[in-house]
Amino acid sequence: MTGAIFVLTVMGLLLGLVIGITVKFFGTEPDPKVEKIEALLPNANCGGCGFAGCSDFARALAGGKAEPNQCPSTNTETAAQIAALLGVALGVRQPKVAVVLCGGDNTKAAKAALYNGVNDCRAATLVAGGAKACLRGCLGLGACARACPFKAIEITGASLAVVHADVCTGCGKCVATCPRKLIRLVPTSATLHVLCSSPEKGAAKRKKCSAACIGCQKCVKAAAGAVSMEGALARVNYDHQPSPPGAIAEVCPTHCLQPALLDVTPVPTPAASASEVAHA
């Protein structure tokens, strides 16, 4: 026993020595400027800036290879602080927010079958496209919610992904995770959304979902240029925001035209990791 303790102690000491030496000779001196910038960044490593993470971005900033406002997740104030630290001017940035363009939760969209398998949207699209009849709707299995570094996406009890605009920083990490390509980055000034992405004909869509855009074009008239038709689907022109949005939204018979939510509800943690099984 004593022998073993002795051996372990000696090994520990030796390893400690080796690590110490390595750091001394090969480690890089941390740059105080980089450290200061890092302290101001959100450290969520969302990658929205185009760099591998916050420290990478901080190093790029210090090296003059990036602009302070490249980080979508810092507010203007912090960006200004960073700019001051670097002694550069702060450019203007259009702040963005993500939105899931589907309103077909379990209470509105028809179920075509029961899904049994990995609890992930991309995995489900490999298996007959999940359970909803609409092949363009939100699968509700939370790939986007798990990818969001700010936990801004909630999967509602009725299996629909909803972005909480107040928490979303517009980093865009969720956009690529959606196999149905339902997530869009829009200006935070957006007041109106068409919560449907299916280009199918109105009659076909109506059968599958009570919240679908049926292409009646009522909103196009009401919104005076802010909404236009793309085939059978109304699309909001995000550069041209009408007001008041509520009044326009009211003309929509299926309520798929919705004013943008700016809610401050607490965000629950997204669904557990993959491999849950829906019951049959």
Partner: peptide, 14 residues
């Protein structure tokens, strides 16, 4: 009863 094939198909796609 793990959904192994689905996992693998997902990995292959990715």
């Amino acid at each position: 009863k793990r959904p192994l094939v689905q996992h693998l198909r997902r990995a292959k796609a990715e």
